[in-house]
Design a protein around this nucleic acid. Structure first.
Lengths: 217, 217
DNA sequence: GTCTATATGGGGATAGAC
DNA sequence: GTCTATCCCCATATAGAC
């Protein structure tokens, strides 16, 4: 028996989106891969934008839940005191990087997809990703503000954005410069996620804890 | 007398690309704004991809020249010793963030454009941006390796990628999460670039200098 | 409720007249 | 160098079969 139409569409769309990006993937390519009719997409998802949103939400809702869950765990473990910046950042970054096992093709596809998702690229993607991120961002901003009471909240907000940018690089494998990609992009395909996560946390935690620059130069 | 067709196309395309992104901007929108014929784009630039590449190269070649020039200046000033990480990163980041004055509309447009450019988003952009970056990336990787001799070169390559990701966030204004964008996106439109640069350098320099994570967890 | 067939309008690209 | 006319592909919408 063959799987239902809806998940077949979602699986095919996720794979193609991850490989070619959202705007470069046509619905026709998706229906060919899924073996369904074009109008089925419109029926189930109300068009391409709805399909993108459904793909995103299917995968990122659990990630965001996991982020919040981990944050609560390490806050409870800290028992009244604030968790370390490293712990908070691991709660934020790890679920995204760890989805799927290192050897799972689906996991790596999702990492590429996530790398694309996190970057603003022209309108509708922001909306789809933004609503998912919002609840998470608020919680983590508060947690980091508590861990770094000397930093203005505005500075922390900036640094969260910098951190997201760094994570997006890690997920998408970096720029296609040979000298850099030999050390990142290629390896990302083959090495384990844990190593990348360690590098990313070492970098972003140090940046997060940096003394703020002089505001009057 | 009216300007030549070619720069008119480039100006209109840059403006629209900056505003709506590359894939969401139609050639027809560009010709309407530039007041030229559709085929003129294909004649001068061999299609949309060539136009994107031309827009990119026109703006980024001088930026990359400036990066290399600044790196040489601070290396000469260091007189045999290595410049600080902060100096190297400022040479790398500042030309990109400083193009145009804070109040120049063109400068801000370019910042948005650059923010989009630096993030991998589906194929052809990487190629266009990658060739531009290559010569710069090699030089800065070497300079940072000299400034941070204890770090493996591979680790530095990863951190350069993280740094680029953070810079891309600064340029594009961050994710559209209200609580974060109130502190970044909105202000980026109105406040001076110097402030952003200071924040970015404080964050990325700390990340760059962080002790590497344990490789055996 | 689920899907097929088909129509519409907009997109990038190209050949060839001027 | 420039423009007109045209081609083919795509996303979307809808009517109606099952």
């Amino acid at each position: 028996m063959k799987p239902a139409t809806q998940p077949r569409i979602l699986d095919a769309a996720e794979k193609l989106f991850a490989r070619h990006g959202f705007e470069s993937t046509s619905l026709r390519a998706i229906i060919a891969s899924a073996g369904v009719n074009l109008a089925a997409i419109h029926y189930h998802f109300r068009g391409k934008e709805g399909l993108i949103r459904a793909v995103i939400e299917r995968r990122f809702a659990p990630i965001n839940d996991e982020r919040l869950r981990r944050l609560e765990v390490c806050e409870r473990r800290a028992d009244g005191r604030s968790p370390t910046v490293e712990e908070i950042l691991e709660a934020f970054l790890s679920p995204m990087l760890r989805v799927g096992l290192p050897h799972s093709g689906q996991g790596r596809l999702l990492m590429q997809l996530a790398g694309r998702l996190l970057q603003p690229s022209g309108g509708m993607l922001e909306k789809a990703a933004g609503s998912e991120f919002e609840r998470v961002a608020i919680r983590f901003l508060a947690a980091l503000h508590r861990a770094l009471p000397d930093l203005p909240k505005q500075e922390i907000a900036w640094r969260i954005n910098f951190t997201i940018g760094a994570a997006a690089r890690a997920l998408s494998g970096g720029i296609p410069v040979k000298v850099l990609s030999s050390a990142s992009h290629e390896n990302l395909q083959e090495r384990d996620v844990q190593r990348v996560l360690q590098r990313l946390i070492a970098y972003t935690a140090a940046g997060m804890k940096a003394p703020p620059a002089n505001q009057r130069p």
